[in-house]
Amino acid sequence: MNKFVRQLLPFGTLTLLIVALSALEPDTFLTTQNFSNVLSRSSYSGIIAMGMTAVIISGGIDLSVGSMMALSGMIAGLVMTQHGSVIPTPGLMVLGTLVGMGMGLLCGLLNGSLITLLDLPPFIVTLGTMSAFRGISYVINKGMMFDVPTYTFLGEGKIADVPVNVLIFLIIVLAAFFLLRYTPLGRYTYAIGSNRQAAYHAGVNVKRNLIAVYAITGLFVGIAAMIATSRTVSAQPTAGISLELDVIAAVVIGGASLSGGRGTVIGTIIGTLLISFLRNGCTLLGISTNIQLVVIGAIIIGAVALDQAARAKAETA
């Protein structure tokens, strides 16, 4: 029962927020257009948050996702435009998309391998790759972006009135949910995060699993990078700066524990939407972006404090 209430808390906050905003700004907030916009805008950070959820459940962290997104986008842009020399053709766009996703996967594999094979803390490894990936993103086109004016499908395209990026977000959510809940990989991820030694003694191949978790996160980042590139019809080396913090915040608001072993896909979605609607609401109400930062900061601390209080109560009960 307690556990149920605890999970309800972020959901309740989200509902409250939506109801409040609907009352305050019925004409602009409560429209399909606005909702569609908010979902579309949170699609790429939401996709990355799915990977981050698994990473955090495993007891790790990935600080490099923002830089990784820029790098994947830049590599894709490089391929699509043949180093800035052509307007992307459909063939080049498909190729570029695959290469961009592959780049994300590769970056994730690198993170996972460094963490497990060199036995280094994830925080340190991804702090390092965060810097390195960003550097390479700048080097690719001497700090300039690649314009991809024809690459609009992922950013603006719709299928049956639903934005394509929202559909992709949905598919990734289902995949992450299934992975964490119904596969040994997901189960082992919880076990490793809860007690790595115990998982190892129960026959879990800890290293292989961790590499897989970081690689999948990389792949998700690659997919997110393509959506971000398409939304701005350009691959930018400055894309995703401090995005990792937003993503980690969403996962933590969703009830995951940074010490590992706890976290859910549903919680992370709620965390992601909470941040997105908060931003949206503040904008509609004419609250400055500076104040938005303060509010989001307060929500992070408040959410975790409440969660901890509920947990402490559950344990003494």
């Binding site: 919880y190 030694q197 115990a198 003694h201």
Partner: peptide
């Protein structure tokens, strides 16, 4: 505690 259980996970797991 150290090498046996994952204490926050369900008994069944």
């Amino acid at each position: 505690k150290r090498t046996g259980l994952c204490i926050e996970l369900p008994c069944s797991w």
